[in-house]
Computed example of a mutant assay.
Amino acid sequence: MRNRMRPSNARDGGDRLKLHRHDLRADGRDYTVITLRPGTRVRFSTNFHHETWHILSDLHGALLLSRLLWGLSFQRRPGTVVLIDRRFICPNPFDAEQGSPIALVPADVTHLPARSGRLLIRGLPVPREARGTVRWQTWGLDAAVREWRDQRDGGTWWQRWRPHEDVRAAEVTNPGGLVTVRASSSLLRSWAVSVATMHDHAHVRATPREA
């Protein structure tokens, strides 16, 4: 079938992964909307707990999300948004409530009011022809992850000075059913490393063997 992705592409979450680009207009603003390609084997969900919105996925989803955040931090085109639409959203595992679509917004170059976000979701029906395919560049992420792990394992992470991330524009909200993650470029990169290393702290519960 023409629209069916090859298995290697569907599971790919590495550097230079392929994404779709859409040129949309919402509430008088032009947006470049980046989406996952149909057939991408990843699923996310969202829930609200302890007064905080959470994005949920598995290990593969976390690694893909980290690359979306890292690549987005280097975008300089005004109006760029990464949108994880309803095709990739499942009910959450806690109360089976349907998750919300997710928008990743680079605060340095993009302003996404709640009304505009809702219009973008409506303007992206499935299926929809993409305007093009982009290669999502995430050079530097793997090196940043290795550096973080080396410093953590060597106990030197606290000795290295780094400029503080710009947190002034950071927010995670859900205006009108769209979970919106908005942050500066420096904070998006910091979050990308944190998300990429989340599984370092995962614990697998052993199942007792039968006698």
Results as ranks from 00 to 15, higher is better:
residue 2 R to K: 08
residue 2 R to E: 09
residue 3 N to W: 03
residue 5 M to T: 03
residue 9 N to Y: 14
residue 11 R to D: 10
residue 12 D to P: 01
residue 12 D to W: 09
residue 12 D to L: 11
residue 13 G to F: 10
residue 13 G to K: 02
residue 15 D to C: 03
residue 17 L to W: 01
residue 18 K to L: 13
residue 18 K to R: 13
residue 18 K to I: 12
residue 18 K to F: 08
residue 19 L to K: 00
residue 26 A to L: 07
residue 27 D to E: 03
residue 27 D to Q: 15
residue 27 D to N: 06
residue 27 D to W: 00
residue 33 V to F: 06
residue 34 I to C: 04
residue 35 T to W: 02
residue 42 V to Y: 01
residue 44 F to D: 13
residue 47 N to S: 08
residue 47 N to R: 15
residue 49 H to N: 09
residue 49 H to D: 10
residue 52 T to S: 04
residue 52 T to G: 03
residue 52 T to R: 12
residue 53 W to Q: 11
residue 53 W to S: 06
residue 54 H to M: 06
residue 55 I to G: 02
residue 56 L to N: 15
residue 56 L to I: 15
residue 57 S to M: 06
residue 57 S to V: 01
residue 58 D to R: 07
residue 58 D to E: 06
residue 61 G to F: 00
residue 62 A to M: 11
residue 65 L to H: 05
residue 66 S to H: 12
residue 66 S to R: 06
residue 67 R to I: 12
residue 67 R to Q: 09
residue 67 R to A: 12
residue 68 L to H: 00
residue 69 L to I: 02
residue 71 G to N: 10
residue 72 L to N: 06
residue 73 S to Y: 10
residue 74 F to A: 13
residue 74 F to T: 14
residue 74 F to L: 05
residue 75 Q to C: 09
residue 75 Q to I: 00
residue 79 G to K: 12
residue 81 V to Y: 08
residue 81 V to G: 00
residue 82 V to Y: 04
residue 83 L to N: 01
residue 84 I to F: 07
residue 89 I to F: 02
residue 89 I to S: 09
residue 91 P to Y: 07
residue 95 D to V: 11
residue 95 D to N: 15
residue 96 A to Y: 04
residue 97 E to S: 14
residue 99 G to W: 03
residue 99 G to M: 00
residue 99 G to P: 00
residue 101 P to A: 14
residue 102 I to H: 05
residue 102 I to P: 00
residue 105 V to A: 09
residue 106 P to W: 07
residue 106 P to R: 12
residue 111 H to I: 04
residue 111 H to Y: 02
residue 115 R to D: 14
residue 117 G to M: 14
residue 119 L to T: 04
residue 121 I to H: 08
residue 121 I to G: 08
residue 124 L to M: 05
residue 125 P to K: 03
residue 126 V to I: 08
residue 127 P to A: 08
residue 127 P to D: 13
residue 128 R to M: 10
residue 130 A to M: 01
residue 132 G to F: 02
residue 133 T to P: 04
residue 133 T to A: 00
residue 134 V to A: 08
residue 137 Q to T: 07
residue 141 L to D: 02
residue 145 V to Y: 10
residue 149 R to F: 07
residue 152 R to T: 05
residue 152 R to D: 08
residue 152 R to P: 00
residue 153 D to Q: 07
residue 158 W to F: 11
residue 158 W to C: 12
residue 163 P to N: 12
residue 164 H to Y: 03
residue 170 A to L: 02
residue 170 A to H: 13
residue 171 E to D: 08
residue 171 E to P: 00
residue 174 N to G: 07
residue 176 G to S: 05
residue 178 L to C: 00
residue 181 V to W: 15
residue 181 V to M: 14
residue 185 S to V: 07
residue 186 S to F: 00
residue 186 S to R: 01
residue 187 L to T: 01
residue 188 L to D: 01
residue 189 R to K: 15
residue 191 W to N: 05
residue 194 S to R: 08
residue 196 A to T: 00
residue 197 T to R: 11
residue 197 T to M: 11
residue 199 H to M: 15
residue 199 H to G: 14
residue 202 A to Q: 06
residue 204 V to Q: 02
residue 204 V to E: 06
residue 205 R to H: 06
residue 207 T to G: 05
residue 208 P to E: 14
residue 211 A to Q: 06
residue 211 A to Y: 11
